Amino acid sequence: MTIFVNVPLNNQLDHFEVTTATETTAVRMRSLFEKRWNFWNNIRTVPSILSFVFVVLGCIQKAK
């Protein structure tokens, strides 16, 4: 997911010229970037949390 979503978003942001952008352009860019970034970051967070929970459960089970 990172290579297909986050890296292209980072590249797009990297090519954006903040120093020459107008306020309107900067707000528009942030809006476009932030919505997609937050959506996919939330999607990526769910499997990470589940993985952590399963590792903890596995450790607890092994300790018994």
Rank of each mutant, 00 (worst) to 15 (best):
M1D: 08
M1I: 09
T2F: 13
T2Y: 13
I3P: 00
I3G: 00
I3K: 04
I3A: 08
F4D: 07
F4M: 04
F4T: 00
V5K: 07
V5M: 04
N6E: 02
N6S: 05
N6G: 03
N6Q: 05
V7Y: 09
P8V: 01
L9G: 02
N10K: 13
N10W: 09
N11A: 11
N11S: 07
N11W: 04
Q12E: 14
Q12F: 00
Q12K: 12
L13W: 08
L13P: 00
L13R: 09
D14A: 12
D14I: 00
H15I: 01
F16V: 01
E17Y: 07
E17H: 11
E17I: 10
V18R: 04
T19N: 11
T19Y: 09
T19I: 07
T19E: 05
T19W: 09
T19K: 14
T20Y: 02
A21Y: 03
A21N: 03
T22R: 04
T22E: 06
E23P: 03
E23I: 06
T25P: 00
T25L: 12
V27G: 00
V27M: 06
R28M: 05
R28G: 01
R28C: 00
R28T: 00
R28E: 14
R28K: 13
M29W: 04
M29A: 13
M29H: 08
R30K: 06
R30G: 12
R30S: 09
S31D: 13
S31W: 07
S31L: 10
L32F: 05
L32Q: 15
L32G: 08
F33H: 14
F33G: 02
F33W: 13
E34Y: 08
E34D: 14
E34P: 00
E34I: 09
K35W: 12
K35I: 15
R36E: 15
R36W: 04
W37Y: 15
W37E: 10
N38L: 14
N38C: 08
F39D: 11
F39S: 10
F39C: 06
F39H: 13
W40L: 02
W40S: 06
W40A: 04
W40V: 09
N41T: 15
I43G: 01
I43T: 11
I43Y: 05
I43K: 02
R44A: 13
T45V: 05
V46F: 15
V46R: 09
P47K: 04
P47T: 02
S48L: 10
S48D: 02
S48P: 01
S48M: 10
I49Q: 11
I49H: 10
L50C: 15
L50H: 07
L50P: 07
S51W: 15
S51G: 15
S51V: 10
S51E: 10
F52Y: 12
F52P: 01
F52N: 08
V53R: 07
F54L: 10
F54S: 08
F54K: 05
V56H: 02
V56L: 07
L57C: 06
L57A: 11
G58S: 05
G58F: 08
G58W: 04
C59V: 11
C59H: 03
I60W: 04
I60V: 13
K62T: 13
K62G: 04
K62S: 10
K62P: 00
A63M: 04
K64I: 12
